[in-house]
Simulated assay, not measured.
Amino acid sequence: MKDVADLIGRIFLSMIFFFEAYDSIAFFKQTKNTMTAYGLTWNQDMLLYAVIFVLVLGATLVLIGYYANLGAILILLYWIPITFIIFSFWNDPVEVRRIQSIMFMKNIAIVGGLLLLIVNGSGKYSVKRLIYRLKLPK
């Protein structure tokens, strides 16, 4: 059951990052406007392309379980700073502070899931294990 839960957890974790990448591509101009609103004005195109690449690569590695810990680390390099920039509920007006704090805690929970993936590995159902098992005898 643990192995199936590892696989399902990896699927769910990777889907949010695939969606984030898709959303950044589909709403490229709006994403750049949001970046400007939060003070991220330096080289926006390069930053946005880099973020999309990191999200897709990291989510793919997490999903297939091949170097899933590297994928999780790549995602964390993006996810942690963005969480503190976008959902800084302590700076928000009282009327939006509650929803922003909920979104902040959701992102922190996702960070926890990624850290668990880094520590525990991708589990039995992964491409990494499949490659290991298919090695030819010497």
Rank of each mutant, 00 (worst) to 15 (best):
F28H: 11
D45L: 15
I64S: 01
L70F: 10
E20G: 11
S24Y: 01
F84M: 07
A50N: 09
I73E: 01
L7N: 02
L117P: 07
I52N: 02
G65A: 14
F17W: 05
L116S: 09
F104V: 06
G58H: 09
M15A: 02
N120E: 13
V119R: 14
L114Q: 04
T34K: 11
I80N: 04
V94N: 01
N33D: 15
L70D: 09
I64D: 04
T41Y: 03
L115Q: 06
M35E: 04
I86P: 03
T83F: 10
G71Q: 09
N107T: 11
A109F: 15
N69A: 02
N43Y: 13
I25G: 04
W42M: 13
R97L: 11
V111Y: 03
L77P: 00
F12Y: 03
I82N: 08
F18V: 04
K32P: 01
A59R: 06
T41S: 05
L76V: 06
I75P: 02
I16D: 00
L48E: 09
G113P: 11
A59M: 12
Q44E: 15
L47I: 15
K32F: 02
I86L: 13
L57C: 12
L115K: 05
L76C: 10
I8V: 13
Y67Q: 14
M46G: 11
N43M: 15
D92H: 07
D23L: 05
L47Y: 13
G58I: 07
L77F: 09
G71K: 05
F53E: 01
N91C: 03
L63M: 10
L48D: 06
L115S: 05
